[in-house]
Computed example of a mutant assay.
Amino acid sequence: MNTDSVISSITPIPTYQLYGEREPWPTPDMVHCEAIAARSKLHNWHIKPHQHSGLFQILYLEKGEAEVRLDDKTSRMQAGEVLMVPQLCIHGFRFRRDAVGYVFTLAYPLIHQLTRRLGDRFASRFARFGVPSLHRLGDDAEGDYLRMSFRALDEEYAGNLPQREALMEALLTAILIRLTRSTFDAQPQQQPPQPRPASRSGGHFARFCDMLEEHYLSHQPVAAYAASLGITAAHLNLLCRRAVDKSALEMIHERIVLEAKRTLVYTSMTVSEASYAVGFSDPAYFTRFFKRATGLSPKQFRQQAEALHR
């Protein structure tokens, strides 16, 4: 099969950071929380089919109903259910206007960080969420725990209290462990249809995303990633353009900038120390790189973040 024809077939599906937004990940947090209504109301409660690169979503529907599209299949989602959506899964929603719940969007760097802490066994189990899955919360202590955790995570995200990041990561860890247990230690009551197998081109792009997470601190050139995938740098750039409307180099730079933001906001490192931490040997070059990407110097970005979190 011609690779270009496979790529062309997916171009009508938009790829967003968050639905309706094409800007880079907006904050130094690696998780974003919002009420279902916050975004759905803006789109008449209809989230059209789209996909995300590098983002994993957990949608908890507390009240109401939704029609859920996953790739080319449609299913119903009821109150008390949780939907797990991995990156590059085409998904869309048509919510009833009384729908209440939360959407939690996790950057894959955070997923990798949390799963590594929990060991290989958990990581291998969590990897099975590479396809979307739907779970019903029980009317028991386990279900109550998850409902409480979802609400607590949303409240913590909206606040600016000390140790906010640590508590959010603890809540996310608990949520992921509980959802993994309920999925693989007991038969889920409802499972949506499996998506179509990824195309070879889609597989190359997903593998590039994984490799980027593993090697971004070493600042490897695009050609090195392409060689590891067995394709040319031009082909890799084409895949990235088709999937997320960015070049491979832009994706590499965005990942480095995200880590730099987190280092500046959540550690007490000096700008020079932060530059070394994210793979730069010259702090002056790091400052120019960061300002070109964000419009602010590292010092200005840190001051702005500190003002927001007071």
Rank of each mutant, 00 (worst) to 15 (best):
G143V: 12
P188S: 07
R116G: 09
L106M: 12
G92H: 05
G138I: 10
R181V: 11
P192E: 06
T115N: 08
E165Q: 13
V82R: 02
C89H: 09
R178V: 06
Q163V: 10
R136A: 15
R178F: 07
P188E: 05
E165T: 11
L176T: 00
L153V: 05
E81G: 05
A174I: 02
F126W: 13
Y102C: 07
E142H: 09
V103C: 10
A127H: 11
F95R: 02
R181L: 12
Q78G: 02
G80I: 05
V131F: 09
E169G: 03
A141N: 08
L88Q: 09
F129L: 05
L146R: 00
G80S: 04
L110G: 03
Q163M: 14
T180W: 00
E142R: 15
V131K: 15
Q191P: 00
V82Q: 01
Q113H: 12
Q189I: 06
K73S: 15
L161S: 08
M148S: 11
Y108L: 14
A107F: 09
D71E: 15
D140W: 11
T74W: 08
F184N: 01
T180Y: 00
Y102L: 15
A166T: 14
H112S: 11
F104W: 13
V103F: 07
L110F: 04
R128C: 06
Y157V: 04
R125V: 09
Q187R: 13
H91Q: 06
K73Y: 12
M168H: 02
R117M: 14
R151C: 10
I111H: 03
T173I: 01
G159I: 06
P188D: 04
R97Q: 15
R116H: 13
G119T: 07
A127V: 04
L106V: 14
Y102K: 09
L110S: 04
Y157L: 04
R121N: 06
T105H: 06
F122W: 06
Y157F: 15
P162I: 08
A66F: 05
I177N: 02
R151P: 01
G101I: 09
L114W: 01
L106C: 05
R117V: 12
G159P: 00
R97M: 10
L172K: 02
G138Q: 11
D72A: 12
D98Q: 11
V100H: 09
L106F: 14
Q163W: 14
Q190S: 08
L83C: 11
A141L: 15
H112V: 10
N160H: 13
G119Y: 07
G130Q: 07
D120T: 13
L146D: 00
T173M: 08
Q87W: 06
V68W: 04
L153A: 14
I177Y: 05
F129Q: 03
A66I: 04
N160A: 09
T173G: 05
L118I: 03
G130L: 05
E169V: 08
P132Y: 05
F184P: 00
K73H: 15
A174F: 06
